[in-house]
Nucleic acid binder design. Structure first.
Length: 121
RNA sequence: AAGGCAAAUCGGUCUAUCGCUGCUUUGACUUAUGUUAAAGGAGAGGAAAGUCCGGGCAGCAAAGAGCGCCGUACUUCCUAACAGGAAGGUCUCAACACGUUGAGAACAGAAAGUGCCACAGAAAAUAUACCGCCUGAAUGUUCGCAUGAAGGUAAGGGUGAAAUGGUGACCACAUUUAAAAAGUGGCUUGGUAGUGUUUGCACUACAGAGGGUAAGAGCUCACCGGACUUCUGGUGACAGAAGUUGCAAGGUAAACCUUACGGGCUGAAAGACCAUGUAAACUCCGAUCUAGGAAUUGCUCGUUCCUGUAUCUCAGAUCAUCGGAGAGGGUAGGUUGAUUGACACUGUUGGUGACAUCAGUGCUAGAGAAAUGAUAGACAUCACGCUUGCGUGAGCACAGAACCCGGCUUAUGAUUUGCCUUUUUU
RNA sequence: UGUCCCAUGGUGUAAUUGGCAACACGUCUGGUUUUGGUCCAGAAGAGUCUAGGUUCGAGCCCUAGUGGGACAA
């Protein structure tokens, strides 16, 4: 979980934007004090999801999807000794089912790994 | 069967695995704070919502006064308190079995004062105005009458949401009766319809009216309603009975207002403690001062503070010196406030009831950019199908705690009960 | 978390102390012009965010809701 307001601002100013419907992720390699490979913020826009319980629901589903599929990204980061701040925005119009959401999450992480590789070279 | 209204109840249960947030215990690291691992146990609602009322709790100030401002408004009770609730009263509406039931009520005051009441209407509020009706001096006269000073009258005047309380009052006859009431006939009077017509009216029929007067009017009488007084019942709102009085002054307070009662202001981002640590910044205290200025809850008084041959200026506004004490800024600092409470459940007693007393049992989220999710299975429940006890599907709606309680309002699924409407079948 | 404000034709705004919902731009039709614009004449377009109430009568007053906006940090 990413809580520092400064790093969040930094992510928005200098981060790389990675799109994969229904997500948009802002990614920035940074140095944390502890040894976690990456920290993440979940966000659901108030404009699309009026009711508080709908927003909570979206964020919880996203959290679950990330928890189940994060191993690949973690392995990559520990191998390359990088640390990452991620700001994840859910831009879909409606809540979607679990199986497609998991596929999309995997695809998003692959995209992030690709962009990081391109940055290096 | 569907829909609507009102009331009541519930808002799924259990097991396993992974994951998240606190708590407890144990182990490891660490001087300590703390970090980390394992185990145990806990983890959203009936509305958590709207923020519409009320209270607890906290700070501010002489925790002063008056005015203003805001709120409430039939009575009694409940309550920590309330614009909430209970029981009752009055009024209005609806239903019928006609004195009961149900629903609703911002239900104090219009005789303290001010304002407003469009259009229409004579008039919208002091009925001193207008039309009309009646009496009619006088003048003219074709003696039919016409004009009309002055006076009387408030019955009538098409309107309007609303017009100054409403309805009524003849005679004779025979029958009956305590009185009355009903029947028949007659005279007068206007109305409606038809026929005739010289368009003025006449006749016929129908259902009405007939105190008094010049015409009228509570002028007189009867009934209903109102007002006042007394008595009785009720804690009270109020109800009932008796008597007196012709009855005087519409509506609107969800217009201002008056009366009574209540409200000091600000909200947990309130506040308390700890850590951090030194600039002529800021805060507090004391001294110097009496006309102005400043501060406070919107204004006034009061209170407190400041004090000059000063500076800027249209109005008007700003500001002191000395001594003493405290500490500031950043780091999304930390701990607390903060969940044992006007608490919940069960029972007893009192009360018509809201509710209260007593006893027993229980501890039930406490986060802080903010935790509840996923998977699998069983059961309760619902729908469909028929093989009638199996299969398939659903397992839902409204909706997420942020200091805490009591209400109200709004959103919404299911079940039960009562009433109403529509359709189908018998 | 708390406080306050607003909602009227397609658009922007009016509506006095409650009494026929008005104006401008835009739209449509006709005229003028070779055509278009300008100009002239005319027409349509709302029942005032929703639901109740007070009143003889609500855009206006009261209550509840819906949507939008502003402020405090």
């Amino acid at each position: 979980m990413l809580c520092s307001k400064k790093t969040i601002d930094l992510v928005f100013e200098e981060g790389i934007r990675v799109k994969c419907y229904p997500f948009i992720a802002m990614v920035l390699p940074v140095q944390f004090e502890d040894s976690t490979p990456f920290k993440i913020v979940f966000s659901a826009p108030k404009k699309r999801f009026r009711k508080a319980n709908k927003r909570n629901r979206i964020k919880r589903i996203c959290r679950e999807a990330v928890r189940l599929n994060k191993s690949e990204l973690e392995n990559y980061l520990t191998q390359h000794k990088q640390q990452l701040a991620v700001f994840l925005v859910y831009t879909g119009q409606e809540e979607i089912e679990h199986a497609p959401l998991h596929k999309k999450t995997v695809k998003l992480f692959n995209n992030i790994i690709q962009t990081l590789d391109e940055q290096k070279h």
